[in-house]
């Protein structure tokens, strides 16, 4: 495992910590898209089906359990916690799940490495993760006052994807025969979706302004 992969995973973990801090400590999920969080829970549930059948490493297993557990916890908080759920911007978070799920599933049936349930669902999760941030980006654009935790959460998620790109470049040059086109192309698409957000995040940070996106 190279440094970029480790930093990517840690950034991903940190993004979850930031989000849980906002939800659990401040008891608010204002500006957070439940649609995106539900899509992430689906991503992890379909990707980590191999958790008990194929052992990669203790590190991988522990991280998988953490991502599965936290993603479902976040969804539970936003849907059922009596204080947190009242801070959810339901009227603004209008993106439809099926508009992302159906095309991703169709694509996974068409473009995959093997036609087995585990492989198709794994491929589906890769495609879905690439676009799962979409409802969150739409909600951010509609939010007038984006708080620091929400802005930092999305920034950390984008940084995690950027670090994975660097990890793939290192792996390509150091591991013989290492290629994974499905993951690479999806990863590039996923990172590109953050480009606009990054631009405004850095611009506002440099000007010492509160984060706001042009609508």
């Amino acid at each position: 495992m190279n440094i970029f992969r480790l930093c990517g995973d840690m950034t991903h973990l940190l993004s979850v910590v930031v989000l849980l801090l906002k939800i659990h400590t401040i008891k608010s999920c204002a500006g957070i898209s439940l649609k995106t969080q539900e899509l992430y829970a689906l991503v992890f549930a379909t990707r980590y089906l191999d958790i008990f059948t194929h052992h990669v490493s203790l590190y991988n297993t522990v991280m998988k359990i953490i991502f599965l557990g936290t993603s479902f916890t976040i969804v539970w908080y936003m849907r059922h916690h009596k204080v947190v759920r009242q801070t959810y911007d339901k009227e603004q978070d209008t993106f439809k799940h099926y508009m992302l799920i159906i095309p991703c599933f169709a694509l996974a049936l068409l473009i995959k490495t093997k036609f087995t349930p585990l492989e198709v669902l794994w491929t589906f999760s890769i495609y879905l993760e690439a676009v799962a941030i979409f409802p969150q980006l739409v909600l951010l654009q509609r939010t007038k006052n984006i708080d620091n935790l929400t802005g930092n959460y999305v920034f950390l998620l984008g940084a995690y994807r950027g670090l994975y790109l660097l990890n793939w470049i290192v792996r390509y040059f150091t591991e013989k025969g290492y290629r994974q086109w499905i993951t690479w192309i999806s990863g590039i698409v996923q990172t590109a979706l953050y480009a606009d957000f990054f631009y405004y995040y850095i611009k506002c940070w440099r000007n010492n302004e509160k984060l706001h996106l042009p609508s």
């Binding site: 191999d50 194929h54 998988k64 490495t113 994974q180």
Partner: peptide, 10 residues
């Protein structure tokens, strides 16, 4: 081992 290698990322 092929499976494990292709799915060794999170």
């Amino acid at each position: 081992t092929m499976f494990v290698r292709r799915h060794d990322e999170l």
